[in-house]
Design a protein around this nucleic acid. Structure first.
Length: 502
RNA sequence: GCACGGAUAGCAAAGCUUGGCCAUGCCGGGGAUUGCAAAUCCUCUUACCUGGGUUCAAAUCCCAGUCCGUGCUCCA
């Protein structure tokens, strides 16, 4: 079994080989912290979280770096609008970022460097690029000269070096007054009056956007590293700029072995964006639905495919996720926390066995193997999820069949282990056992309400049971309707009726 | 204009590199279980954008075309 990864630079799936066997260096472009995160950010960081989790599960030690862009035009603008210092705005949004990502069950990266902490390194790289004639100084800053390394143009997007101007029209010349060529990009911007700035050999100013990721990734991961990720839109110009800067600075190529880019979230077929006003913040959504349901919806697609977000998609995700959760809970209940060495040994999983239990276990084992194959095939979470759902079906079938109690406990244990490994540890879709027991515990308000109506409900249920014993179905249903009006759901079980608040 | 990606059943979406079997879930129909519900399981209908070609065999390969999205400007 070998991990294959789609590399944007080579435009194909290639076998994955880390620079240092056993260790993986991974850098993912973080957010510019001028506002709350929206669904697009959620998609990106959930995608790379699953990649992170799968690499760790495969036995690699991953050094995962994700930056914060804590200075740029939008931050300055927003801070001015709000009348606060830009650092205050940055701090606020970083805190909000972690709250959102924690809710989505995203594991923390190893480091979260902020670009303002790397100004020194950025200046040093810029100086070197000037010395090597890859960059030049103008009256408004320092620019990278793209024509100084034409062979690196378009390596991620396949764009022709001369063709870009045509489509971009007049727009490209609007920024960077001092540029010699429309393709060049800023390494250092001299400050305008009142803007936050840092001293540099070229005057007070701030770094260009692209140089920060080069400085931070190089500082943490070295001059060449394994994986660099980010949104699809960052391929150009951001990541191509990083290739120019990094490779011209170090003279080594490639700076990154595997470029990974996640697909976008669309709304009704159009890209979700702030300018179109068709975006949902993470908060908007998780106020209404379980964050793990949102996570399910985002994982229920291969990371490179676009996702068209809508209510139906969330509804499907909710149904699926609930089904998974119910099956996991059923397995937990069936297992009943019996110590492993006290469980009866299950028969060997064997697909070709005529013995039903052995055959079922064989089927589950096959799905579990296919799950791993899917994850190894460029992190195909969509297929991994379908394999999980197939396991759900098989586990439900087994645990609802006429297994004897001892087998039931063992199968429950087997299923719990598998769910927790794949749906839990790898996909991050399961709450912890503690969270489940808290979910099962009722809040004070619920308890009080139940206490309040308990006598009345019990009385009605007795009447209903009596009516049912007499096969007086219409009265039984009338009583249930009455209970429904009170907000009470009745479920008939083999042990008699059970009720709960709806 | 140039570049990149896409078009699969009522809906969402895998499969395409390495041609032949099967996705998966939601919605809907039928059934088992239940007095009826809920949950669970079984089962069914409806597919591979169009036109050619290659092949015993094409969703998959080749050629041509149509439509859609994204990037080329701050973006995950």
């Amino acid at each position: 079994m070998a991990l294959m990864i789609y590399d944007t630079r080579r435009k194909q799936k290639v076998a994955f080989k880390p620079i240092n066997s056993g260790n993986i260096s991974m850098y993912v472009c973080g957010v510019t912290v001028y506002d709350l995160c929206h669904l697009g950010h959620a998609r990106c960081y959930v995608a790379f979280d699953v990649i992170h989790r799968w690499l760790e599960s495969s036995g690699y030690d991953v050094n995962y770096i994700q930056n914060f862009t804590d200075i740029d035009d939008k931050i300055i603008l927003r801070a001015n609008e709000k009348g606060v210092d830009f650092l205050e705005l940055v701090e606020e949004n970083i805190n909000a970022y972690f709250e959102d990502m924690d809710a989505l069950n995203i594991l923390r990266a190893d480091q979260y460097p902020r670009c303002t902490e790397y100004v020194e390194q950025m200046i040093s790289i810029t100086e070197d690029l000037i010395a090597k004639n890859h960059a030049y100084v103008t009256n408004d800053g320092v620019y990278f000269h793209v024509e100084s390394a034409p062979e690196k143009y378009g390596v991620l997007t396949g764009q022709n070096i001369d063709a870009v101007l045509g489509g971009a029209g007049g727009r490209v010349s609007k920024t960077g007054e001092g540029k010699r060529d429309h393709k060049d990009f800023a390494l250092w911007k001299l400050a305008k009056k009142g803007e936050p700035s840092w001293p540099s050999p070229w005057g007070d100013g701030r770094p260009g956007w692209h140089i920060e990721c080069t400085a931070m990734s190089m500082d943490h991961l070295g001059e060449q590293f394994d994986i660099h990720g980010g949104g699809h839109d960052l391929r150009f110009p951001h990541h191509e700029a990083e290739i120019f800067q990094g490779e011209c600075h170090t003279g080594k190529s490639p700076v990154v072995n595997y470029w990974l880019h996640n697909g976008f979230v669309n709304m009704d077929g159009e890209k979700m964006s702030k300018s179109l006003g068709n975006f949902w913040t993470i908060r908007d959504i998780i106020a209404k639905i379980d964050p793990l349901v949102l996570r399910f919806a985002l994982i229920n697609a291969q990371y490179r495919s676009p996702i068209d977000m809508n209510e139906k998609l969330l509804h499907d995700a909710e149904k699926n996720h609930q089904k998974l959760l119910d099956s996991y809970k059923l397995a937990l209940d069936s297992w009943d926390n019996i110590e492993e060495n006290k469980l009866r040994r299950l028969p060997e999983p064997n697909l070709s066995s005529s013995e039903p239990l052995s055959h079922s276990l064989g089927l589950i084992e096959k799905f579990a193997e296919e799950f791993a194959l899917a994850m190894d095939d460029d992190f195909n979470t969509r297929v991994a999820v379908t394999k999980t759902m197939s396991i759900v079906r098989e586990v439900n079938r087994l645990l609802n069949s006429d297994l004897d109690e001892e087998d039931c406990k063992s199968v429950g244990f087997f299923a719990v282990e598998l769910f927790e490994q794949q749906a839990g540890k790898v996909l991050g879709l399961l709450p912890t056992r503690e969270q489940i027991s808290i979910m099962n515990e009722e809040s004070i308000e619920v308890k009080m309400r139940k206490e309040e109506i308990s006598d009345e409900v019990e009385e009605l249920l007795n009447q209903r049971t009596k009516a049912r014993d007499e096969k007086n179905w219409s009265e039984a249903d009338q009583i249930r309707d009455k209970l429904t009006e009170m907000g009470v759901v009745v479920t008939d079980t083999a042990e008699g009726p059970v009720w709960d608040l709806s």
